[in-house]
Every structure is written in C-alpha cells, then in structure tokens.
Design a protein around this nucleic acid. Sequence first.
DNA 1: GTCTATAGATCGATAGAC
DNA 2: GTCTATCGATCTATAGAC
Lengths: 189, 189
Amino acid sequence: MSRDIAQRHIIIPALGEIFRENGFAGTSLAEITYRTGLGKGSLYHFFPKGKKEMAEVVLDDVASWFEENVFLPLLECKNPKHGIQIMFKAVDDYFYSGERICLIGAFSLDDTRDQFASKLNSYFTSWNEALTSALKRNGLANKQAKDIAEDVVASIQGALVLARSQDNPKVFTRALKRLQRRIETSIHE
Amino acid sequence: MSRDIAQRHIIIPALGEIFRENGFAGTSLAEITYRTGLGKGSLYHFFPKGKKEMAEVVLDDVASWFEENVFLPLLECKNPKHGIQIMFKAVDDYFYSGERICLIGAFSLDDTRDQFASKLNSYFTSWNEALTSALKRNGLANKQAKDIAEDVVASIQGALVLARSQDNPKVFTRALKRLQRRIETSIHE
DNA sequence: GTCTATAGATCGATAGAC
DNA sequence: GTCTATCGATCTATAGAC
C-alpha cells in the first residue's frame, strides 16, 4: 500500500465523524483542517477532488464495514439465527448503542442524496437482501422474509432519528430489542 | 392579523420545501430569494433574525399541522380506532405517500438539532403520547401501548429515510400498511 | 415594504515556496 | 508531502434609496 493510501486511511474515521456531526453541506474544509491537523495542501494532495471525494471515501468505508461485519455474517453464517444475532450486536456496537447516527441515512434525506445516490441505495439494498436471505434460511417464506427485513432495516434508521431528536439513546436500544423479539416470534411460529 | 404576519404565512410553505430539499446548512438566502421572489430586504423585514427565524417558523407550522391533523384526532376521537385510522391517512397525505421527507427528522440528524432541540423533541414526544393514549383507550396496557407507539413513530421515520435512499416511495406505503396491520393485530388479541 | 448595493466573513479550491 | 497565501465565488446580514 502506498504511503498516500495509507495516510488517507488514517484520517477517514475522523472525516466520518465530522460529516456525521455537520452533514455534508455543513462541513467546511476549515473544520476538516482543524480536526485532522492537516492543511488544505495536504488534504487536496490526498483527495484531489476535494470535499466530495472525502465523503465518497467515507461512504465506501462505512459500506465495507457493514459488508464485513453485518452482510457477510447474514449471508454466510451456517446457523442463520446466529447470523441475525451477529447483526444486532454489530449494529448496536456500530451506532454506539444509539449515540451515533447513520451517515448513509443522514445523507439520504436532503439533496445531498443526489450526489451519492448509488452508494446510498446499494447500502440499504445489500442490507435488505442479506437479512432477507438469513430469514429465508430460517424457514420463512420469501414474501414474509422480505417484509420483515424491510421492516427491520427501516426501524433501525427510524430509531436512530428518534433517539437523536429525544437526545435519548435508550430509544434505540429499546427498538433493537423489540426487533429481535419480533424476529424470534416470526421464526418460531 | 397584521399584513406582516399574513405575508409571512404566505411564504412559509415555500420555505418549508426549500429546507426539506437542501437541509438547514445547505439552504442559502440566495435560493430563498429566488424561490420566494422576495428580495433580501423583504425577507429580513418579515424575519429579522434571518435564516434561523425562518426555520423556526417553518418548524412551528409543521408542528401545528400535526397537532390539528394527527395528535388531536388521536387524543379526542370518540372511537380511538378511528383516530388511528385518521392518523395513518393524514401521515400518508402529509408525506405525499413517501415522496416527501420529514423536516423534523432531517433536522434531528446533524448538529442542526442543537439549534432547534426543543421543537424537534416536543414534536416526537407529542406524537408518541397521543398515539399511546389512543392505544390505551383501545384496551392496551400502558406498557404495550407505549411500546407500540414508539415503534410506529420510529418506523414511519425510518421508512421515509429508506424510501428516499431507494428513490422508491412504495417502501413508505408498504411500511404504513405493515404498521396498520400490526396495530390491528395487537388490539384484537 | 421592497429593492439594489455592498459590507465583512467564510466558502471550496489552487498556487507556489520549501 | 505540507505549509502559507490567496484567489474568486458565495455566504449572511445590513444600509439606504425609493
């Protein structure tokens, strides 16, 4: 790995948090300079296309984390019930039990979406498909599996919105428990 | 009503759509000038505190629409099952069956929240409490009513996020139907 | 009340020294 | 590679003519 790429990777987590806090339009290069400790010259050396490229790299980083820690376990776990357990644990960890928002969801709401449409779309599509697959391997019919998967993925997003607006992370953890119970019930009936 | 206040009310819906499309940080006075047809002089005449005051007035407008069309029916409808029906119809109408986002939800996700915290918080709290009340009057126990209400309010937000990210409003209408069925089932068991 | 003109700050991005 | 200096554009907000 070249030093450039290595250096890029070092600041990606910081970039992610800045975009989370301020949104895409609300994030300035001045703040990125301040928070990363890198001057604009360095930033443009690593990200020649500027702020948009920084966001793209962050979105790719989020997607690959979920690929590895959520979608793959759902798709490949030998015991699909265990795959779903892994998903809920990973989701709880990733969103700091409700104290962190979903960058993909946030970018989806305003016209920021149009600049990153395919990345945002494929994130949720992959999640939906992976969870549907795990549910079907648990014995659910195709239609019901799709129904529950969409419900779960949407509910997680909604719970993050609600937890933020109420400044109460427990809204999120309560939702996760509800969803786990709902899946358990569906599988066992 | 003074002419100032009347004139203010005329442009509030336009302001709302602009903030919905661009977010708070992404909305410029230049675009507001262009879309409303009012010069900056006029805008600052009606909203002396500028962009922030415009957003506050829009948020109040959203809140009062929901008070009248969603929360009050839930709280006061003689037949609480009918109140819930009214809620789902109003929600479907308000969000244009999934083609419109929730401004309150969008403002909640990034640091915009901190500027409007109490308005965002009370919107969701009121919704939650009104729906909980209707569910209890349908015979549900307090705990279960609170549980379902939080689930429904969060799921609606999440479905709006998902519908936008997938550019597919049907994700939203499917979610509304799921939630209606879920409530029906809870009440009748 | 509504406009134009513009202040003063900040924006994203670039240039060039080192 | 990283910095400082700076460009031109755009930002919010104000001033003042009408």
